[in-house]
């Protein structure tokens, strides 16, 4: 997307504040109180309500991170996953690579068969 369109996004009414807005784009906001954004300066009922919701959101975050920490106790090291990855890559014949496991499939080279009608390359719309 080019600048012109990005500007349209960030300036369009009703768009979220993230995208090109330059405001609270990053998730760091979650740790420092994302839920309270744009709250009124005085402690109105709505302000308190928002703050309570933000606290509840942070507690959800705490539970999620705790769960992930517990999960990591049983997760192996990355070398194990790298081994899996290499096996996965090497098990598949890839038409874009300079080698093939067994004979290449007939359809792989269809892009080089036949002459192309150059008339179709003209501007059409």
């Amino acid at each position: 997307m080019d600048k012109q369109q990005e500007e349209n996004i960030s300036s369009s009414p009703g768009r979220s504040g993230g995208g090109g807005g330059g405001g609270a784009k990053r998730e760091d906001a979650a740790a420092t109180g994302s839920g309270i954004r744009a709250g009124p300066p005085c402690p109105t009922f709505v302000g308190k309500h928002r703050m309570a919701a933000a606290i509840s959101h942070l507690h959800t975050q705490i539970n999620i991170i705790q769960e992930e920490l517990n999960e990591l106790e049983t997760v192996g090291e990355s070398s194990f996953v790298c081994k899996e990855l290499v096996a996965s890559i090497e098990s598949v014949s890839d038409p874009l690579l300079p080698w093939s496991k067994g004979a290449p499939e007939a359809g792989w080279d269809r892009w080089f068969r036949g002459a192309h009608n150059t008339r179709n390359n003209n501007r059409w719309i």
Binding site: P95, L96, L97, P98, W99, S100, P104, W108, W111, F112
Partner: peptide, 8 residues
């Protein structure tokens, strides 16, 4: 597409 020589 791949247009080179494919080693089997």
């Amino acid at each position: 597409a791949f247009g080179g020589h494919r080693k089997i």
